[in-house]
């Protein structure tokens, strides 16, 4: 089995995550789509690291994980703050700047 299969799987997961971000309205599910994209990129990074025999790809994946953790903390706090004021977690309801 060629290692390219991992890359194809990563591409599929990434596009599924992107589609989730584009299609879903629930802010939390949108966030999970972002997480899926980050995970897919991590898989690609690990595969590249194995292809080139170099651990730098894994280090980069590690940093991606840390940054994703920070991003999730802040993003979920924003979602909760919005939910407290608007009583909704739908991204369509946050349209205060419209009109």
């Amino acid at each position: 089995m060629s290692l390219v299969n991992y890359l194809v799987l990563s591409a599929i997961l990434f596009s599924l995550g992107a589609t989730t971000v584009l299609l879903r309205r629930n802010a939390i599910i949108v966030f999970m789509g972002v997480e899926l994209m980050l995970n897919a990129s991590n898989l690609a990074l690990v595969t590249f690291s194995r292809m080139h025999g170099n651990l730098t790809g894994q280090v980069l994946a590690f940093f991606v994980m840390v940054v994703a953790a920070a991003e999730v903390v802040v993003g979920l706090a924003v979602i909760i703050a919005i939910f407290r004021t608007r009583k909704s977690a739908s991204v369509d309801d946050v349209n205060l700047l419209k009109s």
Binding site: L3, V4, L7, V8, A11, I12, F14, S15, L16, A18, T19, L22, L23, S49, R50, M51, H52, G53, N54, L55
Partner: peptide
């Protein structure tokens, strides 16, 4: 959105499919 997602998948798969990768080294020495 669906079209954009499918398009993204096609583009990514195309890039991965057309790229030529060197013979994999493996991580045994690293």
């Amino acid at each position: 959105g669906l079209l954009a997602g499918i398009g993204l998948a096609v583009v990514l798969a195309g890039v991965v499919g057309r790229a030529t990768f060197p013979p994999a080294t493996g991580l045994d020495s690293a």
